[in-house]
Amino acid sequence: MTEIFGVPTQALMGQLMIGLVNGSFYAMLSLGLAVIFGMLNVVNFAHGAFYMMGAFFSWMLLNYFGVNYWWSLLLAPLGVAIVGIIIEKTMLRWLYQLDHLYGLLLTFGLALIIEGIFRDQYGVSGQPYDLPELFKGAFDLGFMMLPKYRAWVIVACLSICFATWFVIERTRLGSYLRAGTENPKLVQAFGINVPLMVTLTYAFGVGLAGLAGVLAAPVYQVNPLMGSNIVIVVFAVVVIGGMGSILGAIVTGLALGLIEGLTKVFYPEASATVVFIIMAIVLLIRPAGLFGREK
């Protein structure tokens, strides 16, 4: 068997595959963050809480109402988006004119509250969410067993990321959005309802987080801490990619998943830190991030 740096190629390929799965989650979450930051100028620290909420909603839908996985793929993110709309309408909108710090503090506080409520109700060990029947089992790729569900996660995340990028960068609706953030007054003068657009953008961003939560539910334990575990890494991803850069968020998310996977092979103890080391290096060399533009 061939080896690379003393690690069998097979093991390496397996790790890269898993890195890709994790990277997909990172990409989807950081995409939502990037969209929200780009359009609203809000650093949405509650993103992890919305991700957790998505997972919990799908668990609740299944256990209290018997709604299956496929419907919760639609309904849970919708529920999360509605919560997002309420928060944007009642709280966030007052902060757009202020420093980023205020939005960050508000959303951070919200994240703590939301997490606290779920923790109080469900404890920290979490709830199991069984795999949908269709995805039980694994593909034998020769070098590893790839669980069908993980393959689905990669496909789903990548398509959603691509669709979002396409809508924002290549369609008329996307151009309104981008214009609205550059100069809201002017866009409003053309008869476009900018506040509504902003609300929907926030709803869409957190809905994406909710959807990632539904996708994650069968893979991880549905537990109140799942958001705070991942949100810090996701922030690092956004910082590395460049705040507000959509393409940057997607590419960096995937790349960091891969790098993390490799670290787990060569020096597993550092796997929790490697992302931040990269972040520090990127900030030193390119403070605006890899894909960000200096303003």
């Binding site: 397996g14 790790q15 893979v219 801490l225 787990k264 092979v265 103890e269 929790a272």
Partner: peptide, 19 residues
């Protein structure tokens, strides 16, 4: 293989165990 406390994804560690 050693993993950090409160790791959410164990798949890559498990691959090493499998190997």
């Amino acid at each position: 293989v050693k993993h950090p406390l409160s790791t959410s994804d164990f798949s890559s560690f498990l691959l090493q165990a499998q190997a």
